[in-house]
Nucleic acid binder design. Structure first.
Lengths: 225, 225
DNA sequence: CAATTGCCTATTGTATACAGTATGCAATTA
DNA sequence: TAATTGCATACTGTATACAATAGGCAATTG
């Protein structure tokens, strides 16, 4: 018989997930100082696993560490977003090229994921489905380092995408983009698929850039944790 | 007057650097278990900063963490190297393209660095100069996330390059590669420079792959820390 | 009154103590 | 003798105690 090993929870991982969720959905606003003692109390863990969690979030880019000053929620900036989204259209098509044309089973899964994406009720769900779609697209890529790298970029861009999705529903356009990519793949045209993928990432970027531009920058005053 | 702020040492950073050095130069062999208590004693720090250092090395890819089992020196594998070096020729030319043609001052610095590279006495020095050359080449790239990413790949590939350089001196070929890139840049031909850069990375890869293949894999038995 | 300096407090950096788990060995049983 | 089980031990995961530093406030001085 086949059993999943029961998850013996690890406090650092739990804290990391909890803090990331609070940052992503805005309960911890930009530039918020993260007081170790208060935050540890609120999460019901000690400072040791909390600090491990914070350090991982630093390497993920969600939190900034100023030595001997503390940890702060990294604000969303047009500059960072611009840079993150200039990298994805480099990485993703390269991964797809290495993956080659997907087999029939994967194509079916991609169509199913795209429908789930279109039907998503919440922004959180939509982004999760979109990420899942893109990861499935390149799942056959033999370069796992590249796959991990792309996955880490998914996490890093999530805050931006969520902030946008809260205001605008851009799912329809992205779903059509995905359909275009699938169509090219079904005609065994890898080059066209890569181009469409690049276009998908760049147009997604343009939408968020517009939104960040119109938004009054800053204005989120830091309060105590 | 201009003063450097004196470095108020941070034990985590110091430990991180010390452990990385020991891994890179082989004092800590592959698959070596890193006992927290022993290693902390040897470095003269407590377990807390040591663990922070180890966790950072994990995200750098030099160390592997098995939950509740401990930390281990990640062995060099052909598979990982293959993947790392398939990514650099994607990232570096993209960064160069974003950076555009370098100005005269940067070209001069590049030639100077290339001479220092050719004159390097030790493998460590040669690799440091090579990395410096590549980072200088893309220094004008406005995408700092991409630059940081490439820098992190430099660190991750360093162990492989050092292992190779210890046996073979491949500096001459790489120096000529660099010269080719510079020549293209001086003729204002960005496309040709990007192509030459890609070739430089791929041929470097081929050399190390050959070496890893001929080497008897494994054979480095793990001992206590 | 402005500027500087010294002290106080809050907070991070580090060390250590405690708890729980994985691994190896010995004892036991068939 | 082989297999299994219980136990001892060493190690990681977590909590907490201690040390050191940064920032603010007040006192002092010109």
């Amino acid at each position: 018989m086949q059993l999943e090993p029961i998850s013996r929870a690890n406090l650092s991982d739990a804290a990391e997930a909890a803090i990331r969720a609070m940052i992503v959905d805005g309960r911890l606003p930009a530039d918020q100082r993260l007081n170790e003692v208060h935050l540890a109390e609120r999460l019901g863990v000690s400072r040791t696993p909390l600090r491990e969690a914070l350090n991982r979030l630093v390497s993920e880019g969600a939190v900034e560490a100023r030595p001997r000053r503390g940890y702060f929620v990294k604000p969303l900036t047009l500059a960072e977003f611009d840079q993150l989204y200039d990298i994805r259209p480099i990485l993703d098509p390269a991964a797809l090229r290495l993956a080659g044309l997907p087999d029939a089973r994967r194509l079916d899964r991609l169509e199913k994921l795209n429908r789930a994406f279109a039907d998503a009720r919440t922004p959180e769900d939509a982004i999760a489905q979109d990420d899942a779609w893109h990861m499935e697209l390149i799942a056959a890529c033999p370069n796992t380092v590249l796959i991990d790298l792309i996955a880490s970029f998914c996490l890093r861009t999530r805050r931006y995408e969520l902030a946008l999705m809260r205001e605008k529903a851009l799912v329809a356009r992205a779903r059509d983009d995905h359909d275009d990519i699938l169509k090219a793949l079904r005609s065994d045209d890898l080059d066209a698929a890569c181009l469409a993928l690049e276009h998908n990432m760049r147009s997604g970027k343009a939408a968020i850039v517009d939104w960040l531009r119109t938004r009054a920058t800053g204005a989120t005053k830091a309060k105590r944790s």
